[in-house]
Amino acid sequence: MSITIENMTKSFGSTAVLRGIDLTVESGELVALLGPSGSGKTTLLKIVAGLEWPNSGGLNVNGQDWLGLAAQDRRIGFVFQHYALFPHMTVRDNIAFGLTVRPRAERPGKSVIAAKVEELLHFLQIAHLGDRYPAQLSGGQRQRVALGRALAIQPTVLLLDEPFGALDAAVRRDLRAWLRRVHEETGSTTIFVTHDQEEAFELADRVVVMGEGRIEQIGNADQIHDHPASPFVARFMGATIELPVVLSAGRAEAPGLDAGRLPRRALPDGPATLFLRPADITPVADPSGRWQVSRCTSNGAILRLELTDGAQTIPVDLPRRALEAKGLERGARVILRPETAAIFPGPRPSQAASAATELPRKEKAQ
């Protein structure tokens, strides 16, 4: 079942939650909606499910207008973060629920329902839990039951809203790998909401990064990590260091910066901002360097430095045994050598306009 969302908008009062969403999910694809709280990802999922309605836009599934269908007519499998199991029902009855409440004309016979439940219990590797109640299950087991209930109705589309958010890290890792196998074996079209980057990139065929009601970028882990499409994506992907630079013939220039390892960029000359992660920078010892080591700690494998130029302090991580780490101690002066970086034209939003115009003059003075 392919899903096409066109120019979708949604507001709650005066607050715009979706600001023109265009997205196509191919049949059998698993797509993750990734973003911080308030980015609109759960609202978009609820609109697909028929639990919310947009102000404008289109929603088509296999060519059918789903905005004209009530939620119960869409045959959606929905898995929530907090399981939403019926506490007074056994695992078997919870899984069977969606089949037993169908209209009489569409309801399978009791033997067919029982066979389907047994099939899912074995498929989900919880056959030994069929007669237990939710209160007798672990969090991971409850989430498997919730998925079994969603799969029992043979959904046209499977929707998952932070399904592992209430579980501890070790259980989450195990269930991620398990859910990917379930998806591949069922071939369902799946949309998965998460704010966890590792979860999104491990599970999804494609990741949709959302921010403030817009789609910022769509791609796989390497594309989004190495080539963020906007400052928002760069920051969200951990590029927390922002350095003002000047672009000249595609090269980034700034005092105390050796950007020779960065490729030339097809960007206009002028002020720009360099976005880096702490592990993207190699500090190079230089007695006349602009930056000074103000703090130095080690966890045995990684040397964590804090570098300051008097106006800004930045963190840098490098392997403790790296050649460049030798002699780097508190008080040492260094220059910065970025190994990789994202560059966007224009000054940082927090910079005063004067700061952007002063940088070229400082460069000329060096």
Rank of each mutant, 00 (worst) to 15 (best):
E198L: 07
E198T: 14
E198Q: 13
A200D: 01
F201E: 03
E202P: 00
E202C: 06
E202M: 09
V207F: 02
V208F: 00
V209Q: 02
G211F: 11
E212F: 01
E212I: 09
G213M: 08
G213F: 03
R214F: 02
E216F: 05
E216W: 04
E216Q: 14
N220T: 14
N220C: 05
N220H: 10
N220Q: 11
A221E: 14
A221F: 07
D222Q: 15
H225L: 15
D226Q: 14
D226H: 13
S230P: 04
S230E: 08
S230K: 05
P231W: 12
F232I: 09
F232A: 08
F232S: 10
R235Q: 14
M237R: 11
M237F: 14
G238A: 10
E242G: 13
L243F: 09
P244M: 09
S248T: 15
S248R: 07
G250S: 03
R251V: 13
R251M: 07
E253S: 05
G256N: 09
G256L: 11
G256Q: 07
L257Q: 05
D258V: 02
D258Y: 05
L262N: 05
P263V: 12
A266G: 06
A266L: 10
A266N: 14
L267F: 04
P271Y: 04
A272Y: 02
L274F: 08
F275H: 13
R277C: 06
R277N: 10
